[in-house]
């Protein structure tokens, strides 16, 4: 079965792959502000960036339940809520909150900030 993310046209990040970590620039630091999701892309994978104080997090942005970008949903208490069926994911880890329509996590990406830019590495499931 083809995953929803692949059907949507995004590459699916490899699960726990040990490939060499390649850092890709996905935003400037100013673009990522507290209380809002910043939608971006890493080599064809839809991702979203979130800020909490000085920390920036990056997680997969396609809901595993039904194809839609999570960043269009509702951000509250460290959770991004899917705009379609209210599945919630931790913005720090990509972990799904059980009991909703989605039952799979989204990928979590390593983040580093250098020279005013945000870079993310390979995605991994938590």
């Amino acid at each position: 079965m083809i995953s929803t993310a692949a059907r949507w046209g995004f590459n699916v990040p490899p699960m726990g792959s040990a490939e060499m970590n390649e850092w890709v620039r996905v935003a400037s630091v100013d673009e990522v502000v507290e209380g809002e999701a910043f939608a971006s892309e890493r080599k064809g994978e839809a991702i979203a960036l979130y800020r909490e104080g000085d920390d920036i997090y990056a997680i997969g942005d396609v809901c595993p339940h039904e194809t839609v970008r999570l960043s269009e949903g509702w951000l509250e208490n460290g959770l991004i809520e899917c705009p379609l069926h209210q599945s919630c994911f931790e913005i720090r880890t990509g972990k799904v909150i059980e009991g909703g329509a989605a039952y799979e996590d989204v990928a979590c990406y390593e983040v580093k900030v250098e020279g005013g830019s945000v870079y993310v590495g390979e995605g991994r499931r938590p």
């Binding site: 039904e66 509702w74 705009p83 379609l84 069926h85 209210q86 909703g100 329509a101």
Partner: peptide, 15 residues
């Protein structure tokens, strides 16, 4: 969307 028990799990654009 409902689960197999018939409970409403979510609806698009609730917010």
């Amino acid at each position: 969307a409902y689960n197999l028990g018939g409970d409403l799990m979510g609806l698009p654009f609730l917010r």
